[in-house]
């Protein structure tokens, strides 16, 4: 799987104005497999960080390595990096512009120089992963529902077959079914195409359900990075930064306080149920 590494990366907005804000402050980390969740409060620097991963923002300091190579080594080739690190921005449905869904999905691959039959194949396969049915492909993107538009935008990035897929709040504003469809589709895509995925989210439940690893950001820095159970076991650290652990983790903690100990690594409902059954079978 492709790897992406940040070395002492910093970025400041409005450098020359009194209102300057350091959004990312000396962050170092390495992501090289599976689905990694990036959580943090609004304004913790998550969105700035992900925009640096594909070279939309150039870090003021530090370097970003894609498979070991500095992405800014040759600034003229940064466009190639953007094809390798696909970024789905927040509320991507507002970026749709083409006459048909098909054309919109084809925008990225066309920019890469893919044409003809290959282009059709790429578009169809991307549509499949994003859960878009064939009849929708010929429709105008503006006729679709919010959730469908979101999936079209996602397909637009998947169609570029990125080595690393980065999603900024992919499920924001969707209903539970829409969230499951989108996040589930991403998980399947990651498995089948063997792609490293980074998801930014607010929802601890979603993170616990779909991610292998979790990075926690607060005040422009990374304060925790580990597997789900490693991160969610640090209740106090998370709550002190204004974040929360999944509801079920809090329930487990409350149960423990009242004498029913099912362990500290509870972060999905299914797992909690298993543990409870196990405990009472004995």
């Amino acid at each position: 799987m492709a790897s992406i590494e940040l070395k002492n990366v910093s970025y400041t907005y409005n450098k020359s104005l009194p209102s300057k804000i350091t959004a990312v402050d000396d962050v170092s980390l390495k992501i090289d497999s599976g689905i990694t969740g990036l959580i943090g409060h609004t304004g913790s620097g998550k969105s700035t960080l992900v925009q640096m991963l594909n070279g939309l923002i150039k870090p003021d300091q530090g370097e970003i390595l894609l498979n070991g190579n500095n992405i800014w080594a040759d600034p003229k080739k940064i466009r190639d990096i953007r094809f390798k690190v696909g970024l789905v921005m927040q509320y991507p449905e507002y970026q749709l512009f083409a006459d048909t869904v098909e054309d919109d999905i084809a925008f990225g691959p066309k920019n890469m120089g893919i044409e003809g039959e290959k282009l059709n194949e790429t578009v169809e396969s991307a549509a499949f992963f994003a859960g878009i049915s064939k009849e929708i492909l010929k429709k105008s993107p503006f006729e679709l529902s919010g959730g469908q538009k979101r999936r079209v935008a996602l397909a637009g990035i998947i169609a570029m077959s990125p080595e690393i897929l980065v999603l900024d709040e992919p499920a924001a504003g969707l209903d539970p079914a829409g969230r499951r469809d989108i996040l589930g589709g991403i998980k399947v895509f990651s498995k089948i195409k063997n792609t490293t995925v980074i998801i930014v989210s607010h929802s601890m439940e979603d993170m616990a359900m779909y991610c292998d690893d979790i990075i926690v950001m607060a005040k422009s820095k990374v304060i925790a990075y580990g597997t789900c159970s490693e991160v969610f076991s640090q209740h106090e650290l998370l709550t002190s930064t204004g974040l929360d652990v999944p509801q079920i983790t809090r329930i487990a903690a409350a149960l423990k306080k009242n004498g029913i100990d099912i362990g500290d690594d509870i972060y999905t409902v299914d797992y909690a149920v298993d543990k409870l059954i196990e405990k009472y079978k004995k």
Partner: peptide
């Protein structure tokens, strides 16, 4: 930014 991410030039 979003279109640049899709390789727009």
């Amino acid at each position: 930014n979003a279109q640049t991410a899709r390789g727009a030039n």
